[in-house]
Design a binder for these strands. Structure first.
Lengths: 339, 339
DNA sequence: CTGAAAGCGCTTACAG
DNA sequence: CTGAAAGCGCTTACAG
């Protein structure tokens, strides 16, 4: 068998009309049980599978969701994708994945190719470039084509669509509070994800908490490929920094490595908390206390909301959903009065 | 604008036929430059995008590749996916990703939903279940529907298709040789991926190398969620094991943690090499020497081969490609005469 | 250079 | 209960 068998061919073989075959295969009550059975048998025998393009064209639905993420190599997005795929598969949807590589251009490209009736809806976490420029014109085309969008984690509040995220500023405040409660007095925030909505929220939370506690502010922005060891060590030696909150897992690990290599002890000399709970957090020595971002949960929720939106089960106005989160205490922090 | 504009509507607005619009948009030389220009302008103005389902139905091509992987959370598959997506996007293809979760059933399901004219070709890395049972009947449907398949990493030699992998047995031998050259005399292989083709190849290589060197064999199979610390420590204390080759990054990290926590020194008391070069290898203390599996390269190659196959640029017979790899020396191994 | 027509493989109102 | 027909939105041989 070299070519897929079609309804037409099945109809010929069975000596009935195409309509009858189609209805039988779709369990239409119009068709007699015997016919249904005959049709299904032959279909099975011939490995009949309906042509998706034809069905989609006719029904104007694809049962496919597009997903555009900035990258896939960090644990957060891999886990989110995992959640999205799992839930999609449960609900009978497929997912098409595009990676923007933090580029707005690539993001726009991907949207363009997906908008053409390829997907019923779109889930996105925005590229840094998009978030930094706050431009959203490349998202307009979605509106034009009536394709629902759900934004998660890296969101843009100006965009009118459903949004999923954690309460980053609140979580940051909580983390600072816990560090303070465990005895830390000079708490720095290290950011490796500048220009993202997430980072802005965290900085906001950091400043508020620090102000409330009447502490000193220390903010360091770094590039993952070029961690500023000297800066950290300088802060520790001369400013007596005794705690770091890092914007992501790798950042936190780099902070710990740097301090440990210089002979400092963790958590005695330096307490560290990182955002995002990945595999390194659990296995590093010492293990890293983290703010769990529930990537999988965010992914699943995003998918769920999107499907409801597609199927028209949601009221008109899009909503912003905040996911509850919590701090996982491991060995990079001291025991405080809170735990 | 609520509904997508179609060729028909453009034609009406322009007072020309649908054929003319279609040809103009596709830069057919049949159409006059002025017409082409007029058409394109109006199309742009109206944000026209051709309906993918219609085009696919007509052309019998989708420019979409299906990818089925066992999981996405380990670095190897995330990186492979990254490679596949990057290359696909370069070549103007989209990818639909399904995760089998190591289940043959889910794998079969995914194949079934993708086979229906949804994709032009398929890239797979097989689930453990499929590899353990060596069953391949669920892959038959691909042949029936004339959909080319490329297998990577977790391959099954009986399947008649293009295959990409690294030479696992050879790499294992090399790793053992290097450990031996650095002074190790009792070398164990720890496997956390039993029943995979990859693991079988490595065991083969392990046995051969050990035999050639006239050493003793130590093989330990473990479950990632339940690492057998006692067994490792027993081997170290009473059998004087002085080196471990682990089947994957996490396994190697668990070995190191276990030994370090028991007070052993790495690499002085125990040398460790892990397969797969992930993010933990670089950042753990001590950093882990690894056999790089070139996940991204495997992914890119798989995609490249598949497209050539789809576009009929490859000779009839499928081939098996072996990717060159190498050992990355870090601090979990001693310096030997080889490096 | 332009257009009418057939057809890709389906679904579904409508008629019988 | 079954079937003929229209149509989803395109492409492309063919005619003019």
């Amino acid at each position: 068998m070299d070519k897929r068998i079609t309804l037409k061919e099945l109809a010929k073989l069975l000596n009935v009309s195409i309509s009858t075959v189609s209805k039988a295969l779709n369990d239409s009550p119009e068709i007699s049980v015997q016919t249904v059975q005959r049709v299904k048998e032959l279909a099975k025998l011939n490995h009949y599978v309906p042509n998706a393009s034809a069905v989609n064209l006719k029904t104007q639905r694809t049962q496919t969701i597009g997903v555009i993420v900035p990258e896939i190599l960090s644990h957060f997005f891999a886990e989110a994708l995992h959640g999205i795929e799992t839930k999609a598969s449960e609900m009978g949807y497929r997912i098409i994945i595009c990676i923007s590589n933090e580029s707005m251009n690539k993001e726009a490209e991907s949207i363009k190719t997906l908008v053409n009736g390829q997907v019923d809806g779109l889930i996105m976490s925005l590229s840094k470039e998009t978030q930094a420029s706050m431009r959203m014109d490349h998202l307009e085309i979605l509106k034009n084509n009536n394709i629902p969008l759900v934004l998660f984690d890296r969101i843009l509040s100006q965009v009118n669509c459903d949004k999923i995220s954690i309460n980053d500023s609140l979580q940051t405040k909580n983390a600072i509070l816990e560090l303070y409660a465990s005895g830390c007095k000079k708490i720095a925030y290290f950011s490796g994800i500048q220009d993202t909505s997430v980072d802005n929220e965290r900085k906001k939370g950091y400043f508020e908490a620090i102000k409330n506690l009447r502490l000193e502010e220390f903010i360091v922005c770094f590039d993952r490929k070029n961690f500023p060891d000297e800066k950290l060590l300088h802060f520790m030696r001369y400013e007596k920094i005794d705690a770091v909150l890092a914007s992501d897992e790798l950042g936190a690990i780099l902070v710990m490595k740097s301090a440990l290599n210089a002979g400092f002890k963790i958590p005695e000399d330096l307490s560290v908390i990182g955002f995002t709970n990945g595999i390194m957090s659990e296995h590093f020595r010492p293990s890293l206390s983290t703010v769990d971002q529930h990537a999988e949960k965010q992914g699943k929720l995003a998918l769920g909301i999107l499907i409801e939106r597609i199927e028209g089960k949601l009221s008109k106005d899009p909503k912003e959903y905040k996911i509850e989160t919590s701090i996982i205490h491991r060995n990079s922090t001291r025991k405080g009065i809170l735990n």
